[in-house]
């Protein structure tokens, strides 16, 4: 496990001077993941907040090689980079070891980039895909995505007089990645650098396709004060709203909060859930708690079920 002191001596992958919102979680995730790499990294990013805010010509915040292609294809694009890397290496035309990392938001990963991600993972490319998951289309102004949690208000599934935000439970993309039989899949959040960095280190040490789904509080879309980006990540973990766990070759390892807090403690911190606390929405709030509990119980059961399995 690398220390912060050691991390701080590594080359900085991302400069300041980008145009992400103050307190944005995405660049924190980028830094914590990329600093964990011992080898040089090559980054591919989907269109989204991260890409548009870090590369406004002629200013790029990336100090590492960086490629942006389009919205839905960062996994496929990264698979092409990986193919060229292997081809040139095999031919003796490139002699270094690199890590290829693709970033995508939840829109570019859960929704429009889902097929590209699935294909790249199934083909077994040696790359790490990191979803910076802020649970909606934040770049275009907080629209609902497949990652948006039940009850959250977004601009395309807003809370109104007769509707209370998104009606559906979010897609469990991490489990879909597990079903791809990847050697390494993990969930993480902001606010726990040691956990995320360790997971990134594990991913980099694993050959083949890797996927890490990182919950990224978005002050704009979630509605909270910018200094709370790390705090909210931890609260999501402590309430089991966003369990942090890893699956290594099918074997689950779940990080348990010391005391599992009620999900309302997480929800009440954010504007996007404010309507859930109005009179009349008690049942919806109870449904969300029940959903979180059921998901958590399933996760623990999977951990127990795979405990004896050889990794």
């Amino acid at each position: 496990m690398v220390t912060l002191k050691e991390l701080s001596t590594r080359p900085e992958p991302l400069t300041g001077g980008h145009r992400m919102c103050p307190g944005c979680g995405a660049p924190i995730i980028v830094r914590q993941v990329l600093l964990a790499a011992k080898d040089p990294v090559v980054v591919v990013s989907a269109t989204g907040c991260l890409e548009v805010s870090t590369t406004i010509f002629p200013f790029t915040a990336w100090k590492v090689p960086f490629l942006h292609n389009a919205f839905e294809n960062s996994a496929a694009t990264a698979s092409g980079v990986e193919a060229a890397y292997h081809s040139l290496k095999r031919q003796g035309r490139f002699d270094k070891n690199i890590q290829i990392v693709a970033f995508g938001g939840d829109g570019g990963t859960y929704d429009i980039g889902f097929q590209s991600l699935s294909g790249a993972m199934e083909r077994g490319h040696d790359l790490l895909y990191v979803c910076y998951n802020n649970e909606a289309y934040m770049n275009t102004g907080v629209q609902r995505s497949g990652a948006t949690p039940k009850g959250a208000t977004t601009t395309t599934a807003p809370a109104g007089k007769v509707s209370q935000g998104k009606l559906q439970w979010r897609k469990d993309l991490t489990e879909i990645m597990v079903a791809h039989e990847l050697p390494y899949v993990a969930q993480a959040t902001t606010g726990n650098w040691a956990d995320l960095t360790k997971k990134a280190e594990k991913a980099f040490a694993t050959r083949g396709p890797k996927f890490i789904n990182v919950l990224q509080p978005c002050r704009l879309g979630w509605g909270y004060r910018p200094e709370d980006t790390a705090v909210l990540g931890r609260l999501a973990f402590e309430t089991c709203f966003w369990p942090i766990y890893e699956v290594e070759n099918g074997v689950y390892k779940v990080t348990k909060p010391r005391d599992k807090k009620p999900v309302a403690e997480f929800l009440k911190t954010q504007e996007r859930f404010r309507h859930l606390f109005k009179p009349g929405n008690e049942q919806l709030l109870a449904d969300i708690q029940q959903g979180v509990d059921a998901h958590w119980a399933k996760l623990l059961a999977k951990e127990a079920m795979t405990a004896g399995v050889k990794k």
Partner: peptide
């Protein structure tokens, strides 16, 4: 000098030298 500020800064704005 725990560097929690440095590792959580979204704008790479905490200056660290020799740890």
């Amino acid at each position: 000098h725990c560097l929690f500020c440095w590792v959580n800064c979204p704008d790479t704005s905490i200056i660290v030298e020799n740890g």
